[in-house]
């Protein structure tokens, strides 16, 4: 009887061990599949804006960009507009066209030499700084790089 109990105990341990093993073998890959992708950060790609020569110093120029964005298994084409501002010394800035107040689209007004937001009459200068109206912050600037005469911009989610 004593021996039989030991054998049963041993078998019980074996069963529990194997059951735990199987639970891990099947459970962990399934959990990895569910958990890991959720914490992946999608790299924002460099989007081609155009040749640098297209942006002479002076007036900010609006460019509509179209690029592909992965949303899980769906790939959508996203379009967004940016303003390329070239200073006389040739340095570039790429500004968002979204007003920092209520997210309306701003446009460059030649006469006023300012970005104008039609929603609540916000004004920004060519650098994106607030000139007047309700906007709390200057226009967002996107990081850019110039490679081989081509201007690229990385559109971070605003």
């Amino acid at each position: 009887m004593e021996q039989s109990v030991t054998r049963r105990e041993w078998l019980g341990t074996l069963v529990k061990a194997l059951a735990t093993l199987l639970a891990f073998v099947y459970g962990i890959p399934a959990l990895i599949m569910l958990i890991v992708p959720a914490f992946r950060r999608q790299k924002t790609p460099w989007v081609k804006v155009g040749n640098v020569h297209q942006f002479p110093a002076g007036e900010p120029k609006a460019v509509t960009l179209s690029y592909q964005r992965r949303d899980g298994w769906v790939i959508r084409t996203v379009r967004s507009t940016v303003y390329v501002v070239t200073k006389p010394d040739g340095s570039l800035r790429v500004l968002s066209n979204i007003c920092t107040h209520a997210s309306c689209a701003v446009r460059w007004e030649r006469g006023r030499k300012a970005f104008f937001c039609p929603c609540h009459a916000g004004y920004f200068d060519a650098e994106g700084k607030v000139l007047g109206g309700p906007p709390p912050r200057p226009l967002a600037e996107f990081p850019h790089k110039v490679e081989g005469g081509l201007l690229y911009v990385r559109l971070e989610s605003v």
Partner: peptide, 16 residues
Amino acid sequence: YPEHTARIAVGAVILS
């Protein structure tokens, strides 16, 4: 449990 489950567990590991 545990006699028959032990058989099942061994079978399950082999099958797995």
